[in-house]
């Protein structure tokens, strides 16, 4: 893994400083990481980086990317990322989005269907399926943190992180990511009411991958979400919660790698 080249730079996009990591070499894949950015240290990314150049932008307010006041959510972020793709010459490129990043992937692909050659989303947020009193997405901000951990993880032990060993910069990024996720996902909670009416515009082959034990957003939600995307395939990963690529990396890779190529 240590042989994989990683470099980060900051690019001014639509007037916003966006941090972009490039990892590996080969044909490009746009990777949109999730709300906790846990993917960045997962073996799955390094596997892909052996064959592809991963382009990994940090959303506004995440990592070291700037968060100007005017950005209200994934709808705005998608326009910035489309500009980023223009700047980098990316077109008809595979897009992989985890959780919050999956939501952004669909915001991009509904605005510009030609941007993606294929789409993989992993337990994505983004739409409201049920009625006003149905809880499509468990409320991660009003439930007790221990309850949230149990909903997110099949094996709660894997959720534990030792903050005492982290640098100031690492802790700042965790705090920024938490804050920015709340900025963008607070209301409407974890969805854009307009997105489901736009998903018919997605043209790229799409694969939904879902942790069978995701208690934050269940596979039932995922199936209903996938049904809104023309021709989308839906696969579950057993014994995994909201982060199947971290809890079951091999099973996850078996499903995703053949699709991604």
């Amino acid at each position: 893994m240590s042989t994989i080249a990683k470099k980060s730079s900051t690019i001014k996009i639509s007037g916003v400083d966006i941090e972009v990591e490039r990892r590996g070499s080969g044909s490009p894949v746009l990777v949109l990481y999730g709300e906790e950015a846990l993917e960045l240290n997962s073996p799955v990314l390094d596997q892909w980086a052996a064959k592809h150049e991963l382009i990994i932008p940090s959303p506004p307010g995440f990592g070291h990317s700037e968060r100007p006041e005017w950005i209200a959510g994934p709808d705005d972020i998608a326009y910035i990322y489309l500009d980023l793709c223009d700047t980098l010459g990316l077109r008809n490129v595979p897009i992989v989005g985890f959780g919050f990043g999956g939501w952004i992937a669909f915001e991009m692909a509904t605005k510009d269907p030609a941007i993606a050659s294929k789409i993989v989303v992993v337990d994505p947020f983004g739409v409201k399926i049920g009625g006003p009193t149905d809880r499509d997405v468990q409320d991660i901000w009003t439930l007790h943190p221990q309850t949230v951990a149990k909903l997110k993880w099949r094996d709660v032990e894997k959720s534990k992180r030792d903050y005492s060993k982290m640098s100031e910069d690492e802790l700042s990024i965790i705090a920024r990511n938490l804050e920015s996720f709340a900025r963008f996902g607070w209301e409407p909670y974890m969805h854009n009411p307009n997105l489901r009416r736009r998903l018919n515009r997605v043209k790229a082959p799409t694969l939904f991958v879902w942790g069978a034990n995701d208690g934050v957003i269940t596979p039932d939600y995922g199936k209903a979400y996938a049904a809104l995307v023309p021709g989308a395939k839906f696969e579950t990963v057993a014994d995994a919660g909201h982060y199947p690529h971290i809890e079951q990396p091999d099973a996850f890779a078996k499903i995703v790698n053949p699709f991604l190529g």
């Binding site: 009003t142 007790h144 705090a175 996720f181």
Partner: peptide, 21 residues
């Protein structure tokens, strides 16, 4: 309960870094 005492972004990043610690 603890989740109600410090919702994300209510205090600044520096405070939340010390909360993580």
């Amino acid at each position: 309960e603890p989740q109600f005492r410090n919702p994300p972004g209510y205090v600044n990043v520096a405070f939340n870094v010390s909360a993580l610690r």
